[in-house]
């Protein structure tokens, strides 16, 4: 098995699954019906993307395990998602800001991954990229509305930005798998993604009258399995059924 390819695929699969699960928590609780539906639609896209990636990771692993084993039966330290996506939903402003920070990576990531020399990753990327265009448009739109909205909405999204900013850089810091993927042509060049992502973030924040903190400290550890305490709670919820009733099917 190619360990780097496996880990590289898992990094992205885990990002999508965990953020999809987080967004799913909004189901029935959105501020208005249309936005409740928007969040669950995005959750569905992300979980769909994670399924394609887990199916491929299972194929790369080649020991008979399936997408379900990867999603339901790994423990927190096996998950490779970045810390940003496991952060709690908070209020609507915090969910939006988290989404925007992720989408502004994800959209450019898939766009670049379309050129992967791995046929399967390229196909998954082409499919997913189209979906993330809607996601980025939606979250960037809401950053503008809240940032340049009322005094309260501005204050709330600015405070979300202050809180989440230290989690924004981890995704573009290369792991061993990221290095291998770039060198061998099956993955993306994170430096190129970073420059596109940074200018998008800068452009949207400026229009939204928001100010990014100057402190450049960045949390990290997710890609190598060191997570915040939140991931354990997410997994307890997400994996409960398979843990309590192993092998159970619908």
């Amino acid at each position: 098995m190619n360990n780097h390819l496996f880990n590289y695929t898992l990094q992205q699969a885990d990002n999508c699954l965990i953020l999809g699960q987080r967004l799913g928590e909004w189901c029935g609780h959105g501020p208005i019906l249309e936005q409740d539906i928007a969040m669950t639609n995005i959750a569905l896209d992300l979980i769909g993307q994670s399924r394609m990636l887990y199916q491929y990771a299972a194929e790369v692993q080649g020991d008979g395990k399936t997408e379900d084993d990867l999603a339901y039966l790994r423990d927190a330290w096996d998950f490779k998602n970045v810390l940003l996506v496991e952060q709690p939903n908070g209020d609507f402003a915090k969910t939006i800001l988290r989404q925007f920070l992720f989408d502004s990576f994800n959209c450019y990531f898939y766009e670049a991954l379309k050129d992967s020399n791995d046929e399967k990753l390229a196909a998954i990327a082409a499919k997913s990229h189209k979906e993330t265009l809607y996601h980025l448009k939606w979250s960037a739109d809401w950053v503008l509305r809240l940032g340049d909205g009322t005094e309260e909405s501005h204050e709330r999204i600015q405070s979300a930005l202050n809180e989440l900013w230290p989690y924004s850089a981890e995704i573009i810091i290369a792991s061993d798998a990221d290095h291998d993927a770039k060198t061998n042509g099956y993955g993306v060049n994170l430096e190129e993604i970073q420059s596109r992502r940074d200018s998008k973030i800068e452009e949207v924040l400026e229009e939204a009258t928001l100010t990014a903190p100057e402190d450049t400290f960045s949390h990290s550890g997710g890609k190598s399995g060191t997570h915040t305490e939140h991931l354990g709670y997410i997994l307890a919820d997400l994996q409960f059924l398979q843990r309590a009733y192993p092998g159970n099917e619908w």
């Binding site: 249309e34 539906i37 639609n41 995005i42």
Partner: peptide
């Protein structure tokens, strides 16, 4: 009204 509708493929 909204970019996201009753299913992923539709907007409202």
């Amino acid at each position: 009204v909204s970019q996201f509708g009753s299913t992923a493929c539709k907007s409202l």
